[in-house]
Simulated scan of single mutants.
Amino acid sequence: MALARLKKRRRIQVVALAAVALVVSTALIGYAMRDGINFFRSPSEVMAEPPRADEVFRIGGLVEEGTLVRGQGERVSFAVTDGGASVPVVFTGVLPDLFEENQGMVGTGRYVDGTFEATEILAKHDETYMPKEVVDALKEQGVYQAPEAGS
């Protein structure tokens, strides 16, 4: 009888320990991923509802013509637009080779004091590629033009 109670108690302890380990591991995974999840916003969404200064997110659209300014060293400023709104962007670093005005781009960073401070800039892969989020945002604004076949 005592042996049965001891086995039952040991089984309950093992199950309780496993449940605690599962809760702790889930909490640690969630904590580790909190900075890895970046939401996408179009320039119109950023201007309509500006995010908090500590929120990291992705912004995408077209590099607005006439706004690309190269500063001292690797500092670059430009505006990204979706046809409905423009957001000024600053970036310090090396831009991708395919980065240019009137081309699609996606940037990761924070919106601070009316300027998107990018930590990473991605440009299109080839003449026809544009990220799905950017295409969707441009379609919503009615400014998306599908690439011509064969070009």
Score class of each variant (00 low, 15 high):
L28I: 02
L98P: 00
G71E: 12
I12S: 03
A27K: 02
V46H: 08
T119P: 00
I29W: 03
V90M: 04
G109P: 00
Y31S: 01
V94G: 03
Q13W: 03
E100S: 01
G114T: 11
V89M: 15
I59V: 12
V63L: 04
V112H: 05
D97Y: 01
R75E: 10
E65Y: 12
L95Q: 04
N38K: 08
G109M: 00
R75Q: 13
Q13S: 00
I37E: 06
D113E: 10
I59N: 05
S42L: 14
A48V: 14
P50Q: 14
A48I: 13
V14H: 04
P96W: 02
S42R: 12
F78V: 04
D54L: 15
R52H: 13
A18E: 12
S25M: 05
K124H: 02
E55Y: 15
G107Y: 09
T67F: 14
V46W: 07
I29Y: 06
R11K: 14
A118C: 05
L17Q: 07
T108Q: 14
V15N: 05
F57T: 11
S44T: 15
G83D: 15
K124A: 06
G84C: 11
G84I: 09
G84L: 10
M47L: 13
I121Q: 02
K8F: 06
F116W: 11
H125M: 09
R10S: 11
G84H: 10
E65I: 12
R5N: 15
G83R: 08
A79K: 13
G66I: 15
R5E: 07
F99C: 00
S44F: 09
I121P: 03
F91A: 00
E117V: 15
L98S: 03
K7H: 14
D113V: 07
A4E: 09
D82E: 11
P51W: 15
D54T: 13
F40V: 11
D113Y: 07
F39P: 01
G60H: 09
R10N: 09
N38Y: 13
E117C: 11
G66V: 05
S44D: 12
I37H: 08
K124Q: 10
E49M: 13
I121A: 02
L62T: 12
F39T: 14
V80W: 08
L28Q: 02
G66Q: 10
G60Q: 08
F57M: 15
E101R: 01
A48L: 14
G84E: 09
F99Y: 06
A48C: 13
V20C: 10
I12M: 12
L28Y: 02
G114Y: 12
A123F: 01
S77A: 13
G104W: 00
V14G: 03
L22Y: 06
R58Y: 03
D82R: 14
V24H: 02
R34D: 09
Q103A: 06
E120K: 05
L122A: 05
P51T: 10
R9A: 14
